[in-house]
Design a protein around this nucleic acid. Structure first.
Lengths: 332, 332
DNA sequence: CTGAAAGCGCTTACAG
DNA sequence: CTGAAAGCGCTTACAG
């Protein structure tokens, strides 16, 4: 059973001290005698008192809530990425005495976020993806709420954390080039996502300065449904493309399905690589060569940065986390 | 820009009325002259005032936050199910002036939930799955926080909402029996989940009263990784099982991968069915016969029920939502 | 080292 | 119909 009603006043009265003293014993702020301090703390322990955080918040103009804004687009919300982020954020927030409050936004609809900030429900926020025209980000900037983005942005005023997707994609592509693959295709999702753009750059980077190299490439962006994938793959097969680089695991799943249906052997007839290395492709046979990065860590670090900001500490404008390239059976 | 500092006191002063009056104009409670009411409301509109919900909450002993408790187990968290739930909950909460605060729990670790309730951060909670020995549920009961569960429980004191998984599984199995399939296998996950048990019951229901029927079945529960699936499938193929019923899309994915690797044709050599119909199996070829139910609706209704409870309304102890059986190419 | 008092921004009997 | 006052449960100058 909870001791719902115990307040700082009750304790003060019971112990014959002032509320001020009780408050100080709890918070550790201000001078207080070791004796009284112990007495208070023991009493609290014994009675299972826990302070009303809302009242505390009102007095201190804080909420001890962090906002996590994540996409509410019907299909995107399902990506394991955001759940893992949430795990990371939630863990560190919790450990530091904060709770996390979600707001789901879409490109044209940020009312949930607006509510949360105009209602002063959060002390700060973490944005879990970045767009070229980022309405949530602009809103947060304008409203003065401290925030950090998971994902990159050109805006240098924004505290951001990301994996180095550009290098990752360059490295992966480079390594494939090194194995002698000549004809590449890159299939990606929404071009409004900064991550799509960065991966594209990395892809191009790999070819740059290799002008003598005998290789070709083509790029398909804004691919968002399996039908489109189908068409593209068909075209690619006709052209005898040797390697299909998929920018996310959903797209890669579509590609694999299409190939399977047409009885095209991977990697013998065509090689396939992807990003994220998420559960969407888990246990696929053949196992898919992929970039791997620690999404939970991303969430954790983002949250840590945000908490540092709230503590008034200086934080780096941009944090770049690493990645691994996992070569597997879908490439040779 | 936000008008951060405008308070009810400022407005009162500016308009030459009392704070009481302003409060009444806003809340609509208590008698107030139509004139003054309009004046206040207009002023508020014009100045973009929005009340401090935390202060309001302190005065009313409410938080206008709902807790959503979801599994933090590393693999389970990724299931699209919980994200869709979240969408539904978040939508209706938001529309009714509530925000949602998440707490991730595992079987042996409910500290995040405990924090949220001992800190009095939420007015109620929705549990997004039910277990046989449900620590979060027991905790919520003991602490007196109003809550509803998504998923069934035997505890009739608990307000619960669920799809009729038992009937769904019975109907699906029945229909397969009707098509003349003789040898069945059922593969399921953790037996601690109530949903696993209910589906098993439905499966058994389909065979009950058909004693004359020439059919056999075997059941594998607590299957949680792809290696186990592998072994089981191998065994089943040796025994010429005709249909594999998978209790979730992750397991089904494993089964399909194994079959593909062994070049077993679906549905010609073995038929496969699953539940959830989630993105994990989206675009698989052949398309998988599956139960389909509306998870977002589940979240919405759960949230609506909770809000009704908070309003002191009477709510049904148990709500059962429907489902569809989608026959597709993985069965014949 | 300790306490009385004012304050955080609201709501709500109570009185008029 | 309207307002003064007390209260929600904390914190924090200020004074001693």
């Amino acid at each position: 059973m909870e001791e719902r009603n115990l307040t700082i006043g009750d304790i003060a009265q019971e112990l014959g001290v002032s509320k001020t003293t009780v408050s100080r014993a709890i918070s550790g702020k201000g001078r207080i005698g070791e004796q009284t301090r112990k007495r208070v703390l023991e009493y609290i322990e014994e009675r299972h008192y826990s302070p009303n955080v809302v009242a505390k918040g009102l007095a201190q103009n804080k909420t001890f809530n962090l906002g996590m804004v994540l996409p509410g687009d019907y299909n995107i919300v399902e990506l394991p990425f955001f759940q893992k982020c949430m795990l990371g954020i939630s863990r560190v927030a919790s450990a530091r005495g904060y709770d996390v409050l979600i707001s789901m936004v879409t490109a044209g609809q940020i009312t949930q976020l607006e509510r949360v900030v105009t209602n002063r429900k959060i002390d700060g926020a973490v944005l879990t993806r970045t767009l070229a025209e980022d309405a949530p980000m602009q809103y947060l900037k304008a409203s003065g709420v401290p925030f950090v983005t998971i994902g990159s942005t050109d805006d240098t005023q924004v505290i951001q954390i990301d994996n180095d997707h550009r290098s990752a994609c360059r490295e992966l592509t480079d390594s494939l080039l090194g194995r002698g693959i000549g004809k590449f295709a890159l299939i990606g999702g929404n071009e409004d996502y900064i991550v799509t753009r960065n991966r594209l750059r990395g892809f191009e980077d790999a070819f740059a300065g290799k002008t003598a190299w005998h290789s070709t490439r083509q790029v398909f962006l804004n691919v968002d449904d399996s039908r489109k994938v189908d068409e593209i793959v068909e075209k690619l097969l006709a052209e005898k493309v040797e390697c299909i680089v998929c920018m996310d695991d959903y797209l890669c799943g579509c590609v694999l399905n299409t190939l399977q249906q047409r009885r095209i052997a991977v990697p013998d007839q065509v090689q396939v690589v992807s990003f994220y290395d998420s559960s969407m492709l888990a246990n696929r046979i053949p196992a898919v060569t992929s970039i791997r990065f620690d999404v939970e860590e991303l969430g954790q670090k983002a949250c840590e940065l945000l908490l540092q900001m709230l503590d008034g500490e200086e934080v780096p404008g941009r944090t770049l986390l690493g990645y691994d390239v996992r070569m597997r059976e879908s490439t040779k």
